[in-house]
Design a protein around this nucleic acid. Structure first.
Ligand SMILES: [Mn+2]
Ligand SMILES: [Mn+2]
Ligand SMILES: [Mn+2]
Ligand SMILES: [Mn+2]
Lengths: 220, 220
DNA sequence: AATAAATTTTAGTTTAAGCTAAAAACAAAC
DNA sequence: GTTTGTTTTTAGCTTAAACTAAAATTTATT
């Protein structure tokens, strides 16, 4: 069994890889809230275990084995988030923290049972994709609302932020995954956006919009 | 936050205190599967933290603060066991192991939510009492089936063993908590016992009977 | 009561995961 | 193309939780 620390480092590398091309030890150190030296240490250990490849002064990448572990942890996390919401009535701003701890401690049986309870779901409460048992990842939108066009209808796909305050704010606007809304206006120079959500007008900042990912809605 | 290790030691001392009068470091070492030296070490640390009292070469007892922590962990464990069975369909032989891990990692919110889901229950799937939030412990039977009398009716209260094999065996006999049965015959010198459970005759060994705790049934 | 046996504690190591401070490598600025 | 600055690695130290071996204490046996 891998330590919680190792699992968290692998997950962090995985998440950094999704955005940045190359992941430096410094990126990792920041994400993990440890010193650069600690990150270097762990990276060398992961390389030793063949879970990551490391070239000194260059960066880290997960090996196939490492990626498999990352996906397993991410699956645990997102299934747990959805389970906490659906089965235990957690609000979407509270699920992340609890899942963050539990993800390392549930058995495969637990994973399978909550997966079955939830009907083999594809997305977590924030719209993040849940990797399947065999490592397939459901499709997601790459289009941020910050890059969307005025006068179009959109459907919320996901929120890419986990801070409770932010989620409560976004939830207060009615912007949950699968909710349809219209982008009424958008001011230039990273200015505010005006949306119509369920009949109500809402004004949000560019920063907020940049964390919301959307699909163009087909219908009128 | 206390480490998992500290929590497990405290729980172990608590459980040993339930049976043995004085708990020696050796008892503790055996229960925890560590060397006697490791147990001594931890006991000194617990004493340092005012969670236990330790007199060299004599033994350990939990302080009030230590007992409070023990009860909290036991509550987590038993609520989890019941939740796994009731909400996720675990069989009673599988719940212990999963709960053993999760007990250290759930939040107070999780505890409260599963408690509410279960309707503030008093006993776990094996009939063990679930300490209430404020530390009250539901009553249990102190009478082992091994000390019971022929020709009487009994009601199963609890099984005091957690090994999956044993639980599957006992479950196969139909002997779950709250099940009524009659003790038909009992051979002397730790001999076998004959029971009638739901119309069927079952013969069990003295060793098995000693782990089953029962109430005298009032009805005919 | 004296000796032997068992238990418990002490002393000294090990491993994992963190840290700081200094050295080495790379990148940027002049 | 040096010099300066930033990033990354190395080296050495700390803490928690385990271990073994040896010393101290208690219990049991003659
Ligand atoms: Mn985590
Ligand atoms: Mn999420
Ligand atoms: Mn435990
Ligand atoms: Mn139980």
């Amino acid at each position: 069994m891998l330590s919680q620390s190792i699992e968290d480092y692998i997950k962090a590398i995985y998440k950094l890889q999704e955005h940045n091309t190359s992941v430096t030890t410094n990126d990792l150190a920041k994400k993990m809230n440890v010193s650069a030296a600690s990150a270097t240490n762990m990276v060398k250990k992961l390389a030793e275990m063949n879970l990551a490849e490391h070239t000194s002064y260059k960066g880290v990448t997960l090996t196939e084995a490492g990626t498999k572990i990352a996906l397993e942890i991410v699956r645990h996390h997102r299934l747990l988030e959805l389970y906490l919401q659906q089965a235990l009535g957690y609000t979407w701003d509270k699920v992340h923290e609890e899942a963050e701890h539990l993800e390392h401690h549930i058995s495969e049986e637990f994973e399978d049972r909550i997966n079955d309870f939830l009907g083999n779901p594809q997305y977590d409460p924030h719209g993040a994709p849940i990797p399947s048992r065999d490592g397939t990842i459901p499709t997601i939108s790459k289009d941020s609302l910050a890059d969307a066009d005025e006068d179009n209808e959109y459907i919320m796909q996901r929120v890419e932020e986990e801070s409770p305050d932010f989620l409560r704010y976004v939830g207060g606007l009615g912007l949950f995954p699968n909710v349809r809304f219209k982008l009424i206006a958008k001011e230039p120079f990273k200015g505010p956006l005006t949306l119509r959500v369920d009949g109500d007008m809402k004004i949000i900042g560019h920063e907020t919009a940049s964390k919301l990912y959307v699909y163009r809605s087909e219908s009128a």
